[in-house]
Amino acid sequence: MLKYVIRRLVMLIGIIFVISVGSFYLIHLLPGDPAAVILGTGDSPSNRLKLYKLLGLNKSIFDQYFIWISNIVRGNLGISFISQTSVASTIRAALPIDLEIMGLSQILAFALAIPLAMRSARKPDGLIDRLLGATSFTLLSIPPFIIIVLLVLFVSIKLGVPNIGVASYVSFGTNWIVNLESLALPAFTLAIGSFVVYYRVLRSDMIATLQEEFITMARSKGISQRRIMWRHAFRPSSVALLGAAGVNIGGLLAGGFVVQYLLAIPGLGYTLIAAINDSDYLLVQGIVLVVSVGVVLINFFFDFTINIVDPRISRE
């Protein structure tokens, strides 16, 4: 187990290194003079000096990377020359919103997917299973940006539910009830996509597990159906589920960004799109870096959980 953890940690460091190189190199994709593009409307001799100092633009590319990474390690992601604010503090303000939406959507998705997948697996091809199968399949084919557009139309505009529509976001600290209300639609929209994935993965694994000999053995001990499902079948079936969850978090991002943007919720997604539209490249770079590392860490966490759930994996 320890050996496994160390190996995974080494790999994690390698991946984060690759991410840092990738994010660093983004600046060099800019056409023409990067300094001029980055500074944009904030182009002045004093800002130019600051930027050169920050990025080491007149030095070799290796030195530039070194300067950049050592700044980042110290928590300095630079200053946006468009809005004159520190990139790090902008990200710090927005990040909790993303985490909250992500957390809520995942709780919702799991809370729906697990019991329904178990229900389906108990009688595969039964009426309930077919119904859920068709529903999940249809939902699979509706992109989140269409779901959110429709939800806003019906729930907020047609039904007139307050605190739920565009630009109704209030921070958790200000009023947590309104905060939760304002995040209900985005969380729900993202939950649908995750639910479909989790439901399908867990259903198929549960069906496979329920055919295992150890389930027959558990039955032969005379313990209840409910207990067999939860105590014996769920855990060995949840490996693929956790794997899917890890991958899914990364896949949710694009949809999550769109949802934030449409509802004007000032999370990282909203900030990122605004930054792209303003050509605020340092801010885009900072967000890309933070989100990438975040996704990798979440994946790592799920990988780790899988090993606790199924002790067979780290032994191999």
Binding site: G250, V295, V296
Partner: peptide
């Protein structure tokens, strides 16, 4: 590496 972030 999260592919979608890389694309964006």
């Amino acid at each position: 590496f999260p592919a979608i972030i890389a694309v964006i």
